[in-house]
Design a protein around this nucleic acid. Structure first.
Length: 562
RNA sequence: GUCCCUGUAGUUCAACGGACAGAACAAGAGCCUUCUAAGCUCUAGAUGGAGGUUCGAUUCCUCCCAGGGGCACCA
C-alpha cells in the first residue's frame, strides 16, 4: 500500500514536471491525520518556492494530479493546514485485510526480508558459581526478542549462550568453598555465598589472594583432582539451575559455549599476531594498544599467560563459526562493556577479518536499584528467581480475589504466565539502551501500561468469540468508523521496523495502542447480539490474533483465562 | 581528567527531522441488574540551560549544567 501511494505521488510529480523523490510516506502518529500521510508538499513547496510560496498551494496541485487515477483502496485525500497530504483508506481495504489476518493466523506479520540469512544470537551469558540475577533476566528477555524478530523477518536463527566457567571469579568461589568444613556445596545459594566470601578475602587478605590465583591456574590446567571435583560439582549445579530458569522464561538454546573451551584458541590467535603489529608485550602482559584508534588499551593475555575476556572472545567467535556458518552473529550484552566491544571489533578486523564483518553488538541498559549499583561481588543482588517468585505471589493474590473460578492447576499456570509477562513487559517497553531504575512496586504493574493489561485484553476478546453462536465474517462491514480497523493491518510493518532498528519497544507501543483501541470498542459497542455481530466478531478475532502474534514475538505468553 | 550514554508531566516511560510532545501510575470527577472493571470516559500537568543548522528540532551540531558507565592484567 505504501508503495502504491509512493508511486501515485511520483507520477503526480512527474506530470507536474518535477524530478526527485525525497519525500516520505508514513503512518501518522495521530489517527485523525489519516492512515497514511506524506510530507511531499512541505519539501518541494519550500524548495521550489511556488508562486504563492505555500506548501498548501503545491499540495493542491499534487492532489489534483493524484485524483486522476486514485487507487480503489484510497477513500479520501485531504490536505492539512500544515501542508501534509493525508490519505484515508476505504472500508473495503480494511475488510480485505481482516480476511488476510484471519486466513494467515499465526503467520500474519511474518515477512521474508531476511530469507536465506543464517543468524546466531548470543545472550543471557550467566556465570556458573554466581547468581542468575536480574541483569541476566534482562539480557535473556532482550536477546530472546531479538531472536524472534529476526525469525519473523525470515532468517534462520540459532540461539547461543556463552558462560564464564573459568576465570578468577570461579577461583574465588572455589576458594570460598574450600574454607567450608565439608568443602562441598549443595545449592546455588551456598555457591554464591562462597563467591562473596572469596571476593572479600581477595581484596582484604594478601595470602588468600595468592591462594586464589593459584586455584585459578589449577582450574585452567585441571591439575588438582580435589579442585576438579568441587569444580565439576559446582558447575553442574549451576547449569541445571539455569536450565530451569530458561524453561520458565521460554528460551531454548541451540548452542552453549564455555570460556574454558575458547580460551586456548583465543590465546593461540593472540600469540600468532604478537609480532605482526597487532599485539604488544607490556609489563609481562600482552596488550592491544587501542589509543591509536581512539579506543582503550586492553590486556589480552595477562602476565600469568592466561587469556582474559578479550582473548577468549576471539576464540569464541571462531568457535561459533565452526559450529554454525552464520552470515551474522549478534551478541546481546549490557552496555557497560560497549567500549571493550569496540576494541574487540577493531582487533578482529586484523586477526579475523572475514568474521569481523559479520559481528554485530547490541547492548541493553542496566537494571539499577534505587539504592545504587547492583553487584554480586557485594551481595547486593536480586536474583531472577526471587523476582519471579515475588511477582507470582502478587499475581496469585490478585487471581484469588477475583470472582472467577479456577482450578488449583490453572491458578498456578496463570500466575506464572502473568508474572513473567509483567517482568518481560517492563523490560521491553522502553527503548533498548536505557537503564531501568528498578523499583519492585513501581516498575512492575498489573494495570495500565503493562503486560497483564495486554494479556487481559486477549482473554477478554477470546471470551467474547467463544460466546457467540454465529459465524464471523469480514464481508458485511459497517460504515461506522472503528479505530481498531486502522491499526490491525499495520502489524507487519511494525515487525519490520522493530527488526530494522532492533527496537522491541516499537512492538510494545503498538500492542498497547491496539489493545486500548479494542477495549474502547468493547466498552462502546455491544458485540454479541448487535446487527453487526458477524463483522464485529471478525474484528475481535483478528484483534486476538494480532495481539497474540505480537506477544509471541515479545516472548510473552497468552493465557486462555485470567 | 578523558571517552561513551542519558536528562521530557509529581513519578516511570513514548515520540522512524514534521502536524496541538503521547501513555501509564499517582491526584480529581463519572461508568458494572448488558459480552471478564487486571477495564472504559473526562479534568489538571512536561522537552535541564544557552546558541546554531533547517521551511520545520525532544530528535542533528557546539558549549554549559546534572546523573550513570568505561578508562591494563575481573567479566
Amino acid at each position: 500500500m505504501e508503495e502504491k501511494i509512493k508511486n501515485l505521488i511520483k507520477n503526480a510529480l512527474k506530470n507536474l514536471g518535477i524530478k526527485g523523490a525525497d519525500f516520505i510516506v508514513e503512518h501518522p502518529d495521530d489517527l485523525k491525520n489519516g492512515d497514511y500521510s506524506t510530507n511531499v508538499a512541505l519539501i518541494y513547496g519550500s524548495i521550489l518556492k511556488f508562486e504563492k510560496g505555500h506548501p498548501r498551494e503545491f499540495a493542491k496541485k499534487i492532489k489534483q494530479e493524484m485524483m486522476k487515477n486514485l487507487p480503489l483502496e484510497i477513500n479520501r485525500v485531504e490536505i492539512a493546514l500544515t501542508g501534509f497530504i493525508n490519505f484515508r483508506l476505504s472500508k473495503e481495504f480494511f475488510a480485505d485485510r481482516l480476511q488476510t489476518i484471519l486466513k494467515e493466523k499465526d503467520k500474519f506479520g511474518k515477512n521474508k526480508k531476511l530469507k536465506g540469512q543464517k543468524i546466531m544470537v548470543e545472550y543471557t551469558d550467566p556465570n556458573p558459581f554466581k547468581e542468575f540475577h536480574i541483569g541476566h533476566l534482562m539480557s535473556n528477555t532482550v536477546g530472546e526478542v531479538i531472536s524472534r524478530l529476526v525469525e519473523w523477518n525470515g532468517a534462520e536463527v540459532k540461539r547461543a549462550n556463552y558462560q564464564g566457567d573459568v576465570g578468577i571469579h570461579v577461583a574465588k568461589a572455589i576458594w570460598g568453598i574450600l574454607q567450608k568444613k565439608d568443602q562441598s556445596i549443595d545449592s546455588i545459594q551456598s555457591s554464591a555465598q562462597a563467591y562473596i566470601q572469596g571476593v572479600t578475602a581477595y581484596e582484604e587478605n594478601e595470602k588468600a589472594k595468592e591462594e586464589i590465583k593459584e586455584i585459578n591456574k589449577k582450574i585452567y590446567n585441571r591439575s588438582d583432582s580435589e579442585i576438579n571435583k568441587i569444580y565439576n560439582q559446582g558447575k553442574k549445579l549451576s547449569l541445571e539451575h539455569f536450565e530451569k530458569i530458561y524453561k520458565k522464561l521460554g528460551t531454548k538454546f541451540d548452542f552453549y559455549f564455555f570460556e574454558s573451551e575458547v580460551g586456548d584458541e583465543g590465546k593461540e590467535i593472540v600469540e600468532e599476531f604478537l609480532n605482526k603489529e597487532v599485539f604488544k608485550k607490556s609489563d609481562g602482559a600482552i596488550i592491544f594498544e587501542g589509543e591509536k584508534y581512539g579506543l582503550h588499551t586492553r590486556v589480552f593475555l595477562n602476565s600469568e599467560g592466561l587469556p582474559t575476556y578479550e582473548a577468549k572472545e576471539l576464540g569464541l567467535v571462531k568457535n561459533k563459526y565452526k559450529k554454525y556458518k552464520f552470515d551474522t552473529s549478534i551478541s546481546v550484552t549490557g552496555n557497560e562493556i560497549n567500549e571493550y566491544f569496540k576494541v574487540l571489533l577493531k582487533v578482529m578486523e586484523f586477526v579475523l577479518p572475514n568474521l569481523a564483518k559479520k559481528i554485530k553488538h547490541i547492548s541493553h541498559g542496566m537494571l539499577r536499584l534505587p539504592t545504587g549499583k547492583m553487584g554480586s561481588r557485594t551481595g547486593n543482588v536480586i536474583t531472577g528467581e526471587s523476582l519471579i517468585q515475588d511477582m507470582e505471589k502478587l499475581a496469585l493474590d490478585k487471581i484469588k480475589s477475583s470472582n472467577r473460578e479456577f482450578t488449583e492447576k490453572e491458578i498456578k499456570e496463570i500466575s506464572e504466565i502473568i508474572s513473567v509477562g509483567a517482568i518481560k513487559y517492563s523490560i521491553l517497553k522502553q527503548s533498548i539502551g536505557k537503564d531501568i531504575i528498578f523499583d519492585f512496586k513501581k516498575s512492575l504493574s498489573f494495570e495500565g501500561d503493562s503486560g497483564p493489561y495486554l494479556q487481559y485484553s486477549y482473554v477478554r476478546a477470546l471470551s467474547v468469540t467463544e460466546k457467540s453462536e454465529i459465524k464471523s465474517s469480514s464481508k458485511n462491514f459497517t460504515n461506522k468508523n472503528i479505530e481498531l480497523e486502522h491499526l490491525l493491518y499495520r502489524f507487519p510493518k511494525v515487525i519490520e521496523r522493530a527488526m530494522n532498528n532492533y527496537a522491541p519497544n516499537y512492538v510494545v507501543t503498538y500492542l498497547i495502542e491496539l489493545a486500548k483501541s479494542f477495549n474502547n470498542f468493547y466498552n462502546n459497542s455491544k458485540i454479541i447480539g448487535s446487527p453487526e455481530e458477524s463483522y464485529y466478531l471478525a474484528l475481535t478475532k483478528a484483534f486476538a490474533q494480532v495481539l497474540k502474534n505480537g506477544l509471541t514475538v515479545l516472548s510473552i505468553k497468552t493465557p486462555e483465562k485470567m
